[in-house]
């Protein structure tokens, strides 16, 4: 029991765990749409392009989240604008904006004295430093994202599965697409302190990809994904405390290990079972 309770005699550990749990759940649920729509590269790029916004906000003393949100939405709109006329392929446009904005962020940050420490915090998170006002912000943004997913559940499902049906039903497709991008941007802001820019992608895709190996229905995929996210956050935080490793990395590692186990041993689609069955059939 002491083993389990020991870390939480510290207030900052309770705050860290709360933040990690909220972020893991909202990332895992939104992540199912990212996985199903094949938007992993986009989500990763979006996470990187917010760096200049974060740095500017940090330098002028604004809440980091505000800067991140502004640049996240700018990127989402910018990619749409570059690809709208069909002049550039989407992944090319994403690549250009991704690298350019990220470089701008690094350049801005390098003008400050505490360059390497700050960069490490932005890139890999600084979970243990989550303040109670940070926690409030994370909670409010996460709630906003989850409510929006709930409200537009069937429309998001529809445009992810069959955008052409959305067009023939005359649904506001562009609005829905943009809304999804904005939700991703907001979620990245919540995850910034927990896992950092470089590892956010894993929070989005790893639990959802794991869930996709276990179920063939979207609601259960979302539930399983959220559960895997939750387990990763809790186990990762304990690992971080007892093994003294970076917390964001620990959470991501746990999620990755769960993925590997499921990939190998899943009941119907697991790699091991398929080999086993193939042997049996011989």
């Amino acid at each position: 029991m002491d083993f389990l309770l020991d870390p939480f005699q510290f207030d900052f550990m309770i705050r860290s765990l709360s933040a990690a749990l909220i972020v893991a759940i909202v990332c895992s649920i939104l992540g199912t749409y990212i996985v199903l729509r094949g938007m992993a590269f986009f989500a990763d790029a979006l996470a990187h392009t917010i760096l200049p916004g974060v740095v500017i906000a940090y330098l002028i003393g604004w809440p980091v989240a505000v800067g991140a949100l502004i640049f996240g939405i700018l990127t989402a709109l910018g990619i749409g604008w570059l690809t709208d006329k069909g002049q550039l392929k989407e992944d090319t446009a994403i690549g250009v904006i991704f690298a350019g904005f990220f470089a701008l962020g690094v350049a801005l940050l390098s003008t400050t004295g505490n360059y390497s420490v700050d960069l490490a915090h932005f890139l890999f998170g600084n979970l243990l430093a989550v303040s109670s006002s940070d926690l409030w912000l994370i909670g409010i943004l996460a709630t906003l994202v989850l409510i929006t997913i709930y409200l537009f559940y069937k429309e998001f499902l529809l445009i992810s599965f069959d955008e052409i049906l959305g067009i023939t039903l005359r649904l506001p497709i562009r609005f829905l697409r943009l809304l999804l991008l904005v939700l991703i941007a907001i979620t990245i802001v919540t995850a910034l302190q927990v896992v950092g820019i470089a590892l956010i992608l894993s929070m989005f895709v790893t639990p959802a990809a794991t869930a996709s190996l276990l179920t063939k229905r979207l609601p259960s995929m979302m539930a399983i994904s959220a559960l895997i996210g939750t387990i990763s956050a809790i186990v990762g935080l304990y690992a971080s405390y007892y093994l003294d490793i970076a917390s964001g990395a620990a959470i991501v590692l746990v999620a990755s290990i769960i993925f590997l186990l499921v990939f190998l041993f899943a009941p119907s689609q697991g790699f091991i079972w398929r080999i086993f069955r193939a042997k049996l059939l011989k």
Binding site: F161, D162, L165, K216, R217, L218, M221
Partner: peptide
């Protein structure tokens, strides 16, 4: 995309969206 995690009923229900 036939591997998409939806059932037959889900797909037909999409027709009722409007």
């Amino acid at each position: 995309d036939w591997s998409f995690p939806v059932t037959v009923e889900d797909v037909v229900m999409m027709g009722r969206t409007r």
